[in-house]
Design a protein around this nucleic acid. Structure first.
Lengths: 342, 342
DNA sequence: TAGCTTATTGACAGCGCTGTCATTCTAACT
DNA sequence: AGTTAGAATGACAGCGCTGTCAATAAGCTA
């Protein structure tokens, strides 16, 4: 039942250490030896014991995923992406949901690290935006990869995965503009989140490029929640729509769903009288009627690449993974909630 | 930086083994010794190394959470519940999302077990209902605790946590009946899920107890999805509501939200013309307008107790936890989507 | 107080693996 | 063939802890 490295070594007729070299893909193993060992590994269905590897080695086979995000869909996607990569590479994942406060964060991280030495952490927004956290991790000397909303920069190429919300918002706004909309409302998410400003900037840039005047009255400060989408639509469309809004860009699907809901209650026909778009392509966007035009954000793919980036960092020079994408731009998915201005 | 059991032993002036006894709460340690050791533990902020414990000991400090459930809210809640308990007890959690098929399941479990020996698994519905899985685990000799929809039985008290959907459905149906509703539609979830039949049984029992005729035409077979809630409402209320339905019981919040949405599209006033209720009290139920009356299911608490039950099993006789609840009944939360029959 | 039982503690091996360093083999040279 | 650099392999210690079993201390009886 329990197969150890020794069993494999015996079957392959080599030393334990050579088996170790093979499973760790270390250089200096003859092709023939490699094959013999791999055959033995397969025959015995050998799985290296993680506890032993973590204990014996200098590097660890455990990665952590840290998040402080109320969006269950997002979290699950991120988990699944990292997890799929971990499985492939023989790593184990420790998830760490938390509530960000400077004080407890440090202790929690330290406890986490002491209990199981970590290969590194994947940080997701909004935690990844906190410099106090990255400083702390630098201080504790822990590898990490950050998933961030933003435009890629030259620095940080090896520690950040960027989600180009700016560009996506630019494109979704352009989609509306080319359909003849001019007064486009924008419902913002939390001001503290980087994605909010990125999306807003993209919206503004699109307006500017299409010589459309930016009107700050058309921007509503929401909270990335369904409720705030409802409020936003009410605020923007109130007073008999005196702002003459014909389209609303929701900062995320949840708010767009709220806006859509509120609009329908007001008797507005979507998309004939009003186009509404979301952001993220979460299940929310498919649970409205009509379904939301949105920007598809492949969170599982993004987090897979985050994991890959982390692995290359921790493995040093050997086993480099060259195909890592460090910048993603959500792609527009046009559904029934948006259309030409009538 | 790195504190080991030896450092604690040295500071406390005892042997390594005595420290081990203290942190494992083994009997036969003098109170005074215990205190001295604990002081040293605290002074050094010692955290036992999980890899070493897992490697050296016969029991393991890793538990797995296995699920095949598309509901992100549910999964997150379950994770958080188990996780909070793991933290307290010094266990580590390995999450294992999967897609149930007889063939791959076995291999995946075996790989999982070989990589890191497990203290046990927490199984959630619908996987927990598959006897092929429990058989497999029995065969592999792995401890497990199942979270199940159902009424508690005498057997399985030590391996199952029951969620009494029957009773909750009974109560929610009674709520509608006492408000004067007689023709109450029911939108079922997946037929394969135990919760579906439990909820349907509860609905039927309530009707019977209130001397209301059960009409199978009022039952629609859905899929626990928003979409199927939409379809369900259309089917039940179609043809000018010839069935004279005044209330619809959704098998879960997602379907209830779909039904609510569809009803509004048909121009039906909720709750005046039609009461709609959900099940689970997921965020869905608060993202509709009006908000859904539903049955609150405390998934995080449920999964906490599942973890506790698993721990007592694996720890054998010592450290028994007597306050474990093995049966939960979701409690009705009355919101605005239901009201008296007009 | 001796003599016994039982409670408490410690010494030590070893869990399954990796890092270090020594050894052996290979191949490309004189 | 003899030499030698470098590639390929192996022997062995030890990661931090727990299980086993032996040693000691404490508590009890007569």
């Amino acid at each position: 039942m329990k197969v150890t490295i020794n069993d494999v070594a015996r079957l392959a007729g080599v030393s334990m250490k050579t088996v170790s070299r093979v499973i760790n893909k270390e250089p200096s193993v003859r092709k023939k030896t490699y094959d013999i060992v791999m055959d033995a590994v397969k025959e015995l269905n050998y799985q290296p014991n993680l506890a032993a590897r973590n204990l014996a080695g200098t590097s660890s086979f455990t990665v952590g995923l840290v998040y402080d995000n109320p969006n269950a869909y997002y979290v699950i996607d991120m988990q699944n992406g990292v997890l799929s990569r971990c499985k492939d590479e023989g790593y184990e994942l420790v998830i760490h949901p938390c509530t960000y406060t400077d004080t407890n964060m440090k202790d929690e991280f330290i406890t986490m690290i002491k209990r199981s030495r970590l290969a590194g952490l994947v940080l997701t927004p909004p935690l990844s935006e906190q410099s106090s956290i990255t400083n702390l991790l630098d201080e504790l000397n822990i590898h990490y990869v950050r998933v961030l909303s933003g435009r890629p920069t030259d620095e940080d190429q090896d520690t950040c995965i960027y989600v180009n919300d700016y560009k996506a918002a630019y494109e979704i706004t352009t989609h509306l503009l080319t359909h003849g909309h001019e007064n486009i409302g924008f419902i913002c998410g939390d001001k503290e989140h980087k994605s909010t400003s990125e999306r807003l900037e993209g919206y503004k840039a699109a307006l500017a490029d299409h010589k459309t005047h930016f009107n700050s009255e058309l921007v509503y400060d929401g909270k990335y929640s369904f409720e705030s989408g409802v409020e936003g639509a009410k605020a923007l469309l109130g007073d008999d729509n005196k702002l003459a809004i014909t389209a609303i860009l929701g900062g995320n699907d949840e708010m767009a769903a709220g806006a859509l809901f509120a609009s329908r209650l007001m008797g507005i026909d979507i998309p004939r009288q009003l186009s509404i778009t979301g952001f993220e392509d979460s299940p929310f966007s498919r649970q409205t009627w009509p379904k939301l035009t949105t920007a598809h954000q492949a969170n599982d793919v993004i987090s897979q690449h985050a994991a890959r980036l982390l692995f290359t960092k921790t493995r040093g020079a050997r086993n480099q993974d060259k195909d890592i994408i460090t910048s993603f731009t959500p792609s527009i998915v046009i559904r029934e909630s948006s259309g030409p201005k009538q």
